[in-house]
Every structure is written in C-alpha cells, then in structure tokens.
Design a protein around this nucleic acid. Sequence first.
RNA 1: CGGGGUGUAGCACAGUCCGGUAGUGUACCUGGUUUGGGACCAGGGGGUCCCAGGUUCGAAUCCUGGCGCCCCGACCA
Length: 492
Amino acid sequence: MGKEIPTRHEDYSLWYNELVKKADLAEHSEVRGCMVIKPYGYSIWEKMQQALDKMFKDTGHVNAYFPLFVPKSLFEAEEKNAEGFAKECAIVTHYRLKNDLQNPGKLMVDPEAKLEEELVVRPTSEAIIWSTYKKWVQSYRDLPLLINQWANVVRWEMRTRLFLRTSEFLWQEGHTAHVSAEEAVNETLQMLNVYADFAENFMALPVIRGKKSDGERFPGAVDTYCIEAMMQDGKALQAGTSHFLGQNFAKAFGVQFTSKEGKLEHVWGTSWGVSTRLMGALIMAHSDDDGLVLPPKLAPIHVVIVPIYKTADEQKNIAARADQIAAGLRKQGYSVKFDNRDTYKPGFKFAEWELKGVPIRIAMGPRDLENDTVEIARRDTKEKKTIRIGELDATIPALLSDIQENIYQRSKKFRDEKTTPVSTWEEFKHVLDDKGGFVSAHWDGTIETEIAIKEVTKATIRCIPLDAKEEAGKCIFSGKPSPRRVLFARAY
RNA sequence: CGGGGUGUAGCACAGUCCGGUAGUGUACCUGGUUUGGGACCAGGGGGUCCCAGGUUCGAAUCCUGGCGCCCCGACCA
C-alpha cells in the first residue's frame, strides 16, 4: 500500500488491485476475465445479500431461480435487448467431448455433438424469464408478479477489473409484471429507492438518483433509472439500475392477460439489479492508506479483540477476560473475533485487521487486566482511548453507529466538493481534466451532442437527477436551449 | 486488435548490455530471545530462469519464432 491514495487513474488502478488482494477479498482466476472471491470478500457480499434480500421481501418480492442457458431463438425475441448484448455473449455450441486420437491423453470437442440450437449463457435473464411468465399469466388475478433471482451472469468484456467488471459476476435481478403502466413505473421507482436506501444506509455511500439519457438506456427498456456514486479518484460509478420496460418484453414474448373488463392486454414490466460491483464501490469509496474501511452494517466482524501478553499465565488470564467480553457483545448481536493466535505479535494483528477494515479493535494487556480497562480503537479515524470494561456494553453500539454515520458524511462531503456546476464549454473541459468528479451542466437533450461530448472529453451523462430543478439554460456544447442541468462525469 | 511494459523461489524483484551453470528482500520451516503498532539472532528447505528451436565447449544472458500477464486505448445496459 502506498503512503496515500494515488490520484492518477493509472496509479489508482494498481493501488486498488493491490488493496483487493492484500485485504484478502478476491483475485484474478486462471479463467479469462473471471475472479475468485475469497472467503473474507464473500462474507462481505453475504452481508450485502442479506440486507438487500430483506428489503426485497419487505416490499413484497419473492425469490425464484431460472436457467443459466437461453436458447438463441428466445434470446433474440426482444430485438433491442438482443442487439445490445450480442457483442458480449458466451455461447454453448456443443454438449460433448471425446478422446483426441491425434493427441493421446487430450480431449477434443466432438463435432458430432453439435447442438441444433445454440445456447446463450445469460448476460441478463429477461428473455428466459419473460418466456416463462407467458405460461404463468392468464388473468389480472395472476398479477403482479414480483420475483427476484440471485444468480451469476456472463458478459464477455474486453477488459476486466476485479469486482467492477468481470466476465462472470454475481448479482440479483428483479423481474416484475404488472397490470398497468402506472403500477410498473411505481415499482421501478420504488426499487430505485430501495437501492438508494441500501447504498446510503448500509454502504454509507451517498448516491444520486436519476434517469439515464437515451444513449445510456438499457436495451429493451422504455426508461432506465440509476443510482450514481462518486469514487475517491473522482470517477463516477453506476451502482444500480432499475428499468421500466413498458410492454416491450410482454409483446416480444406474448405475455397477455384478461383484464377486469374482459379485454386481452399485454402486461407492463420492470427489471432491476445490483451486482458484486457494489463491492468495488465499497472499496473505492471508503478505503484509506491503511486498507479497507468497512461500514459497520456490512462488516462481517464488528469488533476484534487483540490480546497483549508476555507470559503464558498472562495470556491465559487475558483470554479468560476477553472471552467474557466477547460473549457479552455477541449477546448484544455483534460479531466479535478474539484473535488469540500466539503465532503473531500484536502490532502485526493491528495492521492486519485494519487492512481488512474491521470497524472497532479492542486491545487488552496486563495493565488493562489490572485496571479493569481496555484500549478501544476505531478504524475510520484511527482514534484510540482507554475505557473501563463495564462501559463497553454502552460504548460499542454508540461507536458503531457513529462510525457508520461518520464515513457516510465523509463520503458525502467528498462527493459534494467534487460536484461542480459549470456554464461554459471551456470550464467544462477544464474541470473534467483538473478536478474530476461530477460536472453539472446544461445539455440540449440530443444523443448527437451526448456522443460528441463523449468523444472529446470521455465524459458521459451519468444521469438526469430526479431532483433536478427546472432551470432554463443553454447547452454547454451546442448552445441550444436546455430545461435543466444534467450530471456528467468520467466513469467506471 | 493497437501503444507501452513485463515474464527468474509462494510474493516483490536484481542479475541479461559484456555467456561460465542463480541471487536479494519477504514469506515458509527449526531453535532461542521477544510481545502496548507490521520483532530480532542463528540455522534450514524451496527455482524445468515462460515455451520451442538455433549459435556455442558452455545460454537466465546472444539469435529466431511462439505464448502469458500488467497498464493505457478500442468495447462496457
């Protein structure tokens, strides 16, 4: 790890990779573009899953599972969706290997075992799910369908990056069907808000809720909404999307129902998803020179207890007291790790748990045992103080919620400082190059301008914020009239 | 697929220009001393030097041809 977080993108990339490896989260696999998520990294993902899943259930959704493979004919049914993903699909063409007679001991694809119809490995599941919904929906009484799936998907990206873009990734995708456009739009916005709540309240990550421009819209959707976050290198990261699909998929797959009035109608759809990319967001938003900083609500370990001792007797006595403390905190619902390894010194353990982002560390030595105290250190600010053991039960909950709030406020302050309103094209380019972050500017609403700006500056329209004020202005690029400001940024 | 870099012990690298049979740090193992911020000393184990071919008495090093990986770009709901 470097002395401080690098600002040049190239260096930041290397720093990020190193952090992901050192904190024991994940590593590149032998398999092209794929990632191995290691136990510690996965335990953080599990915390995310649990929190999200509860939020989905609380909003009336249920989980199900659909196939990994999508027959090509189904995949291509919704044309825009198929076209959007065509360039990055993995395809299964054969179902058998056989011994290669030319190369003893090796196997070859059996040319006799060619599939009649190729199977696309899902890059997203709209096709397979809507083809199934067709069978499930007859009447308005079958609606709404509010289903979520936890799954893996494959997108054959050219360049990959741990957590942010990998050939295979884990995610959740919700797919719902409704009787009316209004109900579907409400669902789309509801789930966008669920994502924003999750990002802000669990990940301590402030996000902008917005709508995507035509150029950035999900293929096959009528409207795409998103939450956008700001990373510490000033680049934007799309942290979640929620799509209003209109009747596009219903029409492509013939999903119809008989309404209360006895009329045959196509259903209205939504889909929404977040992925292991959120792990990347979590790392890039909060980490410092000493490693990961985890928000308490997502930390697999809330408190680590490190004993300090010279003799075996001391170790025994401290361990006995530490076990009591751990038991007490666990009773309160906290995850506590007592690091009683005698193969590492305390200093080493301090550094290791800091690297892994554990929010609170308790250190306990002979002096403490004598005084009935412990040293308590918080990860976000590195502050340490000595308190009486009796105070722990009250101190820990307060400190954890303080840490959660502090890293959120810290990120928000950073994000706000990195958000710049500009009114001229020169200023626009200047801010992007020298400061980075979000640039709030007027845009004429055309895809041509969007593309032109991207070509010159590499900045894209991250979103049209939902709370954007109506404010007449002139497009930064074309000078044509614009009704409101939108957010531009260079993005991951 | 383009531009740049790189391939030598688990990891990070030196050695390559100028050919002589491989080294440093770290990690690992053993013993001892240590332990309130990444310990120290001593000893030890571990490498087809990316692959193939060539030159040579002799190749990590020189030549030819492959391949891998990293960063940047193209791509990326």
